[in-house]
Computed example of a mutant assay.
Amino acid sequence: MPTTQTLHSRSAGKIIPATQAKRSSIAKAKALAPEVPAQIGSTPQTRFRGDPDIFGRLVQDHDRHRALLAMIAATRGESGERKKLFKELVKELKAHAAAEEQALWSTVMRNPKTTDDARHAVAEHKQIDDMLADLAARDMASPGWLRRFAGLREEYLHHIREEEQEQFVQAQKHLSDSDVRYMKQFFNRRKREEKAAAKVTTQIKH
């Protein structure tokens, strides 16, 4: 069985030690605000961290998002760091979700054995997007903003844990090596395009 330290992938891509993959993702987040701590703590076990194909690529993003969430939680008021990190988080989550749906879930949804997992993941993407828009519409300096942000953080961490430990596991069983290699290439292209077009939208939730 693969371990969380080094995944022996089915494909011929380059395998990266899990700890190295995680450090690299955190470093990308830290580059935006080097003075803000990114204390993400322990992460749920997943056999995909370091995987050279689509699932490892998605976990790479997840770890970056974990770091951004931790960094925002460490900021104060309407600081420049909070504004910058939140904008980056919004663009990252929007682009990641859209590219993931196009590269992975659109295919997985067509298989009756994994349709429910795909629909669940896509529904949670919409819920998270609504929470981001609600936060963007509120005063960052208000005491309630960080409380609402904590709710978003909890929701998103639950979402990616579920993907890494359950939904990706089931999806992989029904995909070929060529599928997952192609999906990674397609995801990378769509992620770049989606992020370039992503905007921060505002909409108070009722």
Rank of each mutant, 00 (worst) to 15 (best):
T4C: 07
T6R: 12
T6H: 06
L7P: 10
H8A: 13
H8T: 15
H8M: 14
S9W: 02
K14I: 15
I15F: 00
P17A: 04
P17R: 02
T19Y: 07
A27T: 12
A29V: 11
L32D: 00
A33H: 13
A33K: 14
A33N: 09
V36A: 04
V36R: 08
A38D: 01
S42W: 09
T43M: 06
T43E: 05
T46V: 08
T46L: 07
D51L: 00
I54V: 05
I54Q: 06
F55C: 04
R57S: 08
V59W: 02
Q60V: 06
H62P: 01
H62C: 05
D63N: 09
R64N: 05
R66S: 04
R66T: 00
R66C: 03
A67W: 13
T75H: 04
G77W: 01
E78R: 14
G80H: 04
E81F: 10
R82T: 14
L85A: 06
L85Y: 06
V90M: 07
A95L: 01
H96L: 02
H96C: 08
H96F: 09
A99N: 03
E100W: 07
E100L: 07
L104V: 14
W105D: 01
T107K: 15
T107I: 12
N111R: 12
P112Y: 02
K113F: 08
T115K: 15
D116G: 04
D117S: 12
H120K: 15
A121M: 13
H125A: 13
K126Q: 09
D129G: 14
L135Y: 01
A136K: 08
A137W: 05
R138Q: 12
M140I: 09
M140G: 14
G144S: 14
W145K: 11
W145G: 15
W145A: 15
E155W: 02
Y156P: 00
Y156N: 06
H158M: 07
H159P: 01
R161V: 09
E163C: 05
F168T: 05
A171H: 11
Q172W: 15
K173E: 08
K173L: 10
K173A: 09
S176I: 05
S178G: 04
V180A: 06
V180N: 02
F186Y: 15
F187D: 01
R189M: 11
R190G: 04
K191C: 03
A196R: 11
T201A: 10
Q203P: 11
Q203G: 01
Q203N: 09
